[in-house]
Simulated assay, not measured.
Amino acid sequence: MNFEDNEHLAPNMYYDRHFEKEAVKIMPGEYYVTTGDKLIVTVLGSCVAVCLRDKVTHCGGMNHFLLPNDGSNESGLLTESARYGVYAMELLINHLLKLGASKSRLEAKVFGGGNVLRGLTLNNVGQRNAEFVLDYLHNESIPIVAQDLLDDFPRKVYFFPDTGKVMVRKIKSVHNTTIFDRETEYRMRVKYTPKSGDVDLFT
Rank of each mutant, 00 (worst) to 15 (best):
V50A: 12
E20P: 05
S141W: 01
A108F: 04
L122D: 10
E74R: 14
R53N: 06
I40V: 15
H175P: 01
G164L: 03
V56C: 08
L99I: 02
L9E: 15
N73S: 09
V41S: 14
S81Q: 05
E131Q: 12
D54A: 01
G71E: 00
L106W: 02
K109V: 00
V41H: 15
Y32C: 14
G29D: 15
N176P: 00
R83S: 08
G126W: 03
F202E: 13
D16R: 11
V110E: 02
V157M: 01
V174S: 13
Y186P: 03
R118P: 01
D70Y: 03
H175V: 09
E20Q: 15
M13Q: 13
E107I: 04
T193C: 06
G61C: 05
Y186D: 05
C59Y: 10
I93E: 10
E107F: 00
V24P: 06
H175F: 08
K55M: 15
G29L: 04
F153Y: 14
V41G: 08
N124W: 03
F132S: 05
L149D: 03
V24N: 10
P161A: 10
V24S: 07
D151R: 09
E90N: 15
D162L: 08
T34S: 03
A49F: 08
N139R: 10
T203S: 12
Y31L: 14
L120Y: 15
L137H: 02
K195I: 06
K195M: 07
M188L: 13
L117H: 08
L39D: 13
V174W: 07
K98W: 03
K165H: 11
K55Y: 12
I93Y: 02
N12L: 13
